[in-house]
Amino acid sequence: MALLSIDQVTVAYDKVEAVRGVSLAIEPGQIVTVIGPNGAGKTTLLGAAIGLLPWRGRMSFDGIDLRRLDVEARIERGFCLVPETRELFGDLSVSDNLLLGGYSRRRDSAGLKQSLTDVYGRFPRLSERRDQKASTLSGGERQMLALGRALMVKPRLLMLDEPSLGLAPIIVREVFRIIASLRELGVSILLVEQNARAALETADFGYVLETGEIVHSGAASALMHDPRVTASYLGGHHDAGLEARGPKRMSGPGGPRSEEGELR
């Protein structure tokens, strides 16, 4: 059974339908990516899935109808979102941000302590800055804090919205390495990215969202070779010399591809 199943979901702002009849599924342990241009409705889809936006259609997480769960109940069941805007607690210290990440597990103090040690182990940078206010962090550190805060939930499914947005190439590589490594923790991931190449290299399965509708889908490695996808999202033909933004190689199951650079 799919961990997250989205079936014919439509999300509308007033009368404008930003997402129309989208269906997708994520199996346990899978990394699934949704790629597409700006304004395709990717962020809207995630907002609806986490319960911040009203939607029509059917969605279920772990077999539970999502209509019955509010945002906080989703979090308690290990279904989390790291939004594009990160939504950190700027006035609070790094360690308080992480501590509050574990708010839904606040009665399990031993487990929380363990998770905190794990997060600091994974992001030594956060450990160095644990007493600093979150608002003083750099863009990359913020993204790490946002990821770390979400890991404190002990997520079963993590939705990441543009985790590489606005980050320097070297940090982007780091972020994707971390995402791939989350698989070992048994965390399923729904990754929304404009950095299509890096996303497909990391993911098992991919969907292409355009103007609110899914236009292509398939195994990530297949999408990477699909001419319709490469033309629009992977920088056209296989000629080199494009700006390198993404990681050169990911050892994920997305399949090896190393020729050219990155779009945008």
Binding site: L52, V71, I75, P83, L88, F89, G102, V153
Partner: peptide, 8 residues
């Protein structure tokens, strides 16, 4: 929003 996203 951040608070809701950690379950507060």
């Amino acid at each position: 929003i951040g608070a809701r996203l950690v379950g507060i």
